[in-house]
């Protein structure tokens, strides 16, 4: 079984994000990078399917700068078989749809039975790429999956929906996106890291893929500005000698200052 995982390298979740001078991007000088956590679930699930099916090839596909190769290497160290990185400066300005088009072009050149992607990347939170790749490839798409089974050329997925789960099924090839709870990703082992150094990782440009950078990388959507949420104002501590005093004071403040009662 040929499984493809779409993966994005993102700033680590504990990085202190600073908005760059242009007001539209974040400073990347002192950022540590990780695999987007939902994509990590995708890698883990691909490896579990491969193990269960007793065979297959897991290919990691990513678009990003030279540094993104580290994220692919980590996935290879977890156990994936090969990686393809589209590293082209022209993709820096791409929007989600553009990235999806590039990814689907890569995937089209590969044999595949199943594609797994994170439900979203935790940096730009577009929730877009998985669905758009499925659309470009004209294959079934299932989002927010917490459990899957594959049998007889079909995949059955449990999707989280408001207040419960929905069980859906489609023929393969198909694409599904991950939801928290699907699995607990494995650690990269030391032997795994050593083996990963020797696994194939192809670097491609847009031209290599037969795409015209001027067209493929022109965004339809542009980021105008990034903003931090407004700072919360400090709370107020109600003082009083007894609980009854405090309650009376609270009622007074809610009535006179907050004007909510």
């Amino acid at each position: 079984m040929n499984i493809i995982v779409l993966l994005k390298q993102v700033p680590s979740t504990e990085t202190m994000i600073q908005i760059a001078g242009d007001g539209r991007s974040v400073k990347t000088d002192d950022v540590s990078w990780i695999i987007s956590p939902y994509d990590e679930f995708a890698v883990e699930e691909a490896l579990r399917i491969k193990e269960k099916q007793k065979g297959g090839i897991v290919t990691i596909v990513s678009v990003g700068g030279a540094k993104a190769a580290e994220a692919i290497r980590t996935a290879l160290a977890m156990g994936a078989d090969k990686g393809i990185l589209v590293n082209d400066p022209a993709t820096a300005g791409c929007d989600g749809l553009g990235i999806a088009r590039i990814l689907s072009t890569v995937v089209q050149s590969l044999p595949f039975d199943l594609i797994i992607a994170g439900q979203r990347a935790v940096d730009d939170e577009n929730f877009l790429v998985g669905a758009a790749v499925a659309e470009f490839l004209k294959i079934p798409f299932m989002s927010l999956v917490i459990q899957e089974e594959i049998a007889d050329g079909k995949i059955t997925c449990h999707r989280t929906i408001e207040g419960g789960t929905a069980v859906v099924s489609s023929p393969l090839p198909a694409l599904f996106t991950t939801q928290r709870g699907l699995n607990e990703p494995r650690y990269t082992s030391l032997p795994g890291v050593m083996k990963a150094k020797k696994k194939p990782l192809d670097i491609k440009t847009l031209t290599d893929l037969g795409l015209d950078p001027a067209i493929a990388a022109t965004p339809l959507m542009q980021v105008i500005s990034l903003k931090f949420p407004e700072k919360r104002k400090a709370g107020k501590i109600i003082d009083g000698a007894t609980l009854a005093d405090k309650a009376a004071m609270l009622a007074k403040v809610l009535h006179e200052e907050a004007k909510v009662i």
Binding site: E184, R186, Y187, S189, L190
Partner: peptide
């Protein structure tokens, strides 16, 4: 991948 109580969790990965 060792739990607080010292038992291995699902993704336990022994040292090398």
């Amino acid at each position: 991948g060792v739990g607080k109580d010292g038992t291995p969790r699902g993704n336990y990965e022994p040292g090398v």
